[in-house]
Design a protein around this nucleic acid. Structure first.
Ligand SMILES: [Mn+2]
Ligand SMILES: [Mn+2]
Ligand SMILES: [Zn+2]
Ligand SMILES: [Zn+2]
Lengths: 163, 163
DNA sequence: GGGTTGCTTGCAAATCAATTGCAGTTGGGG
DNA sequence: CCCCAACTGCAATTGATTTGCAAGCAACCC
């Protein structure tokens, strides 16, 4: 898991959310729409994959926004449900715009770090059975898949790839 | 997630592994069986839940074993497949003895941190379908459940519980 | 049993992600 | 245009985990 994000491809599910819609959600809670926040939200909008705060900071190279501000902003957006945090087990938090209601999971390449969105989810019936069996309420889950992507499988030449 | 481990109950699935069997696996790889490693393995053997390095260190209060040594030992044991690491999303790694072949998952109480072992797993057929769909190989998953345990649900009196 | 050697350990310093105190800015409701 | 709570940059701090290094010790060989 090295190179952060290859595919600057067209964000599959996120591109639709207009920036104005996001900023409105800020105003609605008496949060201020600052240039930094707009810039951060815009970076998230144009990326398909979850980004680390450091990656967001790098993407904002020009508009010098402090790393601490990004950390604080992500915390705020997380609390508002605007972004979602995911954890790929490398000790660094990643964020992506929350897509309406439903959550989703990821398939991460162990070699190059490429991320694929996965819509399949843990069977709801089974999850409820587990909760009931142990008397838990308000149950939720955290699920990520790991493997080796097609490009990292065959050691043939081609575009530079991670070790 | 505050109080580390309530239930010092009988380790359900781990207690069977004799310490000698574990130390033998060390010798087999030209690793040395030191007093510290035996002590660490013994702590893991007698706990049913995943423990943080700090918790292991606390459990070893008497036999003063350095925290750095515990970190290094867990890294070694992880590489040997003797222990497994799990991540409850609070930025602290937890370890438990690996149980032979099959992995398992956990149900964690958001209030008190109590951990329940969960044997249900993500449907293998679906996982394979996901891997095939995206051309990934060597696929695996990381899955944990979160909720509120029975004791933390009703605000009635009784034994002290987390806020 | 004593000696050799490479794996280990304790201790302290270094990394790294993430958080926080503080003083100076600024968005935006009035 | 004014005012003030919400923000921000910057530097210091916290907490987990890692690492350099010299001393220690288990495993192995005579
Ligand atoms: Mn995603
Ligand atoms: Mn377990
Ligand atoms: Zn799901
Ligand atoms: Zn599983």
């Amino acid at each position: 898991m090295n190179q952060p994000c290859h595919q600057h491809a067209i964000p599959r599910r996120l591109v639709q959310q207009p920036l104005s819609e996001l900023t409105d959600r800020l105003r609605a809670r008496s949060r201020k729409v600052t240039g930094q926040r707009e810039a951060i939200l815009d970076v998230l909008r144009r990326h398909a994959n979850p980004l680390t705060n450091r990656e967001i900071h790098a993407a904002l190279r020009g508009s010098g926004c402090d790393l601490a501000t990004i950390y604080r902003t992500m915390h705020t957006l997380l609390g508002m449900g605007v972004v979602r945090r995911c954890d790929f087990g490398d000790g660094v938090a990643r964020f992506e715009l929350a897509t309406g209601d439903a959550h989703h999971h990821h398939l991460v390449c162990r070699a190059c770090g490429m991320v694929v969105e996965v819509d399949d989810c843990f069977p709801a019936a089974l999850e409820e059975a587990i909760a009931r069996r142990h008397g838990f309420v308000g149950i939720a889950h955290r699920l990520e898949f790991f493997g080796v992507c097609p490009r990292c499988q065959d050691p043939e030449p081609g575009p530079p790839k991670a070790p």
